[in-house]
């Protein structure tokens, strides 16, 4: 079993007819994911990759019973695509698009409030359940089914950690990229809750970095619930040059609280094992799982 996606996930692709949409739709289908529809305003009624194309998300959902969407729409209209999917009550939406304007994401977050949608991203590589379903753009080949849940802010580090976990003789239940942008949908904490509730997930790897406060929120949550499952974290950016911000306001939101050392300290206080280097994550979670048995 996995979190967020399973064998019954029926995927529609918003922006399927473009280069990225076409390429990754083929990749997802080759992995065995059930892609059932594409959405491209103005091209409704046609077909692409032998799949029906619809003008709107609501039509695609009504005709095919799609229960998840992945968005490859360019930045200028990505927010409209996300809001359309939220209004059509698609339960799970992954947005791959990068460089979505920040205020557009504020609007998307307002639309998410009280909705029935879980949004992953924007700027996310998506969700992968090895051997079950791929709703994303990540490379496959290193993953294998298993008990390690991975939640990450970085696509490239996720690929790296997946390979390390497999090399350590373990597998992954699900990998989730929450997205590389400051403002996104599903957070690390909510993702961790899902992993803790999932009986097939034995341990969790959190991949965080400098900036923002999500890692602190996760640490507070872990300190509060004290989960039995081992949790390993990697925080990158300890040696990044301090960004010089123009005013005081940047520091109010990011500043000292975003520093890697503070995140590491908060996680360690909560009982999380923090990997000492990025190349040791696989080994660290393997040891933590062995110790927990």
């Amino acid at each position: 079993m996995a979190i967020l996606i399973d064998h019954d996930t029926r995927i529609m692709v918003q922006g399927m007819t473009g280069w990225a949409g076409t390429h990754h739709t083929i990749q997802m289908m080759e992995y065995g994911a059930k892609v059932v529809a594409g959405v491209r305003p103005g091209k409704g009624g046609r077909s692409h990759l032998n799949l029906p194309i619809f003008d709107t998300v609501a039509e695609a959902k009504g005709a095919t019973g799609a229960n998840a969407s992945i968005i490859f729409v360019p930045p200028a209209t990505a927010a409209a695509a996300m809001i359309e999917a939220i209004e059509a009550e698609i339960p799970l939406v992954v947005t791959v698009t990068e460089r979505v304007p920040a205020l557009d994401m504020v609007r998307v977050r307002e639309a998410l409030k009280g909705s029935r949608t879980r949004l992953v991203g924007a700027n996310s590589q998506g969700v992968l359940a090895p051997g079950i379903c791929k709703l994303g753009v990540m490379a496959t080949g290193s993953e294998r089914p298993g008990g390690v849940g991975i939640v990450s802010r970085s696509a490239s580090l996720t690929s790296e950690v997946v390979a390390q976990v497999t090399a350590a003789g373990l597998g992954q239940s699900t990998t989730v990229g929450v997205g590389g942008d400051a403002i996104h949908g599903l957070g690390m904490r909510e993702c961790l809750e899902l992993f803790l509730a999932d009986p097939e997930t034995d341990g969790v790897v959190l991949i965080g970095e400098i900036g923002g406060s999500e890692e602190q929120e996760v640490a507070d949550y872990i300190a509060q619930v004290r989960p039995a499952k081992p949790i390993v974290a990697l925080i990158v950016g300890a040696h990044a040059p301090r960004e010089r911000r123009m005013g005081h306001a940047g520091a109010l939101t990011i500043g000292g609280s975003g520093e890697a050392a503070a995140k590491v300290a908060a996680l360690e206080r909560a009982g999380v094992t923090v990997a000492s280097s990025a190349h040791l994550v696989g080994r660290t979670i393997a040891e933590a799982l062995a110790g927990a048995r």
Binding site: R153, S154, S156, E160, I207, L234, V236, G237, A240
Partner: peptide, 9 residues
């Protein structure tokens, strides 16, 4: 960016 920061570290 993540792998870049990890490499730097």
């Amino acid at each position: 960016a993540g792998l870049g920061l990890a490499t730097l570290d």
